[in-house]
Simulated scan of single mutants.
Amino acid sequence: MSLLSGSGAARPGGGPAPFDSGLSALFARLGAVLVETPLLQRAEPYLDTAGEDLRRRIFLTRGEGGETLCLRPDFTIPVCLAHIEGAAGLPRRYAYNGPVFRQRRDEAAEFRQAGIENLGETDRAAADARALAEALAALRACGFEAPVEVVVGDQALFEAFLTALDLPAGWQRRLVRCFGRDDLLRGALAALSREATSDPLDLDPTVRALVRDGAVAPLSDHVRTMMEEGGLPPNRGRSPDEIAERLIEKMALASTRLRSAYLDRLGAFLALDCPLAEAPARLEALEASSGVEFGAALALLRARNAALLASGVDLAPFRYRAAFGRPIDYYTGLVFEIGAATGEPLVAGGRYDRLVSYLGAPEPIPAVGFSLWLDRIAAALEPKP
């Protein structure tokens, strides 16, 4: 049966859930197809793409065939899989409204999310602006009229900055994985700022010498010999080549120290926190002072701001924070959260251009979307004593 079956209207007990009528009307007006996806999902796509923060919160189980399954922790991945299965044309817009299951501190593990996923729109600036505008409209459709704050970050700008610093590829990957996780990012920057005071890896002297030489082939041969002497089967775990490549990368990471001038530039970028309307000029000034070029990522930010203004969105509540990210690994560009002045975000989303092809689409599909936490919105609307 197609994953796109159903209307999404069924509710436990047969009654409508809060905000259903307003959101259904909005989705219809925006031309988003309302879809259902199974509550029980294959866990592998989440384990591979969603990041550690989400992985440790999902509820796992085993299928009859031994496959790892999970209760649906979000809708983005199931909607993308449904699109691939249905082989629908592009661009295509999907809406959803239903329960998800995720461990949360001081909040219920079962809660409702609604949102829109926009697949295949090639004008990324216009699609990003549309996602932000529709996220605000969805809040209003739920009856939330209070002032909000919109925090915007950009994974692509961060990656462009790292590329310009000419860090080793392993360090770039590590810092990208830390983006949006302030504690991890601080730890990684601290490691980059200090000299190694001792051998960073506790290795056999022969292995250490081969690792320092950086040649994969002789190190792989040595690892293969050690595995054979230890009686380890060749098809168990990582191959000798993979072990050799990983050891060389770990040595490069542990031995790298970022020059203080570069570290200062990275710190200046991550400290940038300003009204979104001012962000292009502030980033241009950083380019001029640091010699770093943001290229297409900065051009996209300018175009996105212009598209927001052209659609009538007031930029006054929007802030750009260079260090802001969301702890989900599949984001590639825009990331954002919308909330009241205090408390958890009510809406969040971003761009994930690599996810759909990773999940099995025959070619890359640009994609952006957002989700509303309906339980938080309902709590925010409750009368305060």
Rank of each mutant, 00 (worst) to 15 (best):
R92M: 15
E85R: 10
A215R: 10
L270N: 08
L232K: 12
F370Y: 15
W171N: 07
I248S: 09
A299R: 13
G187M: 03
V292G: 02
E159H: 10
V148Y: 12
Y94E: 10
A252L: 08
D53S: 05
I377D: 13
T61Y: 06
F294H: 01
L298S: 04
A340F: 04
E149W: 08
L162H: 00
P45Q: 01
G170V: 00
A285G: 15
R62Y: 12
Q41A: 06
L232P: 10
E278P: 03
I84C: 03
V313N: 03
G325R: 13
N305F: 03
A303C: 11
Y330P: 15
D375V: 02
G170M: 02
L119V: 08
G333R: 01
Y96W: 11
P362G: 08
P233N: 05
A137K: 09
E145L: 15
R351K: 07
R224I: 08
F27G: 03
A138V: 01
D48R: 12
L167M: 00
R238K: 11
S289W: 06
L71A: 00
S371V: 03
A32I: 00
A254S: 06
T206Q: 10
A125R: 01
V152Q: 03
I328G: 09
A191N: 14
G369P: 04
L30A: 14
C274H: 06
D166N: 11
E121M: 05
G86T: 06
P383F: 02
R208M: 14
A88N: 09
R140E: 14
G343Y: 04
P280D: 08
A17R: 15
P91R: 05
L132G: 01
G360M: 10
E107Y: 10
P345M: 06
L232F: 11
G187T: 02
P38V: 11
S220M: 04
G86F: 09
R56L: 03
R265F: 08
A125Y: 08
R212F: 00
L219K: 09
L139Y: 07
L272W: 05
L23M: 09
L192M: 15
V176P: 03
T256C: 06
Y320I: 04
R321W: 05
A133R: 14
E85L: 05
V313L: 07
R92V: 14
I243F: 10
P240D: 01
S371N: 06
V356W: 01
M227S: 13
G143A: 13
L30R: 14
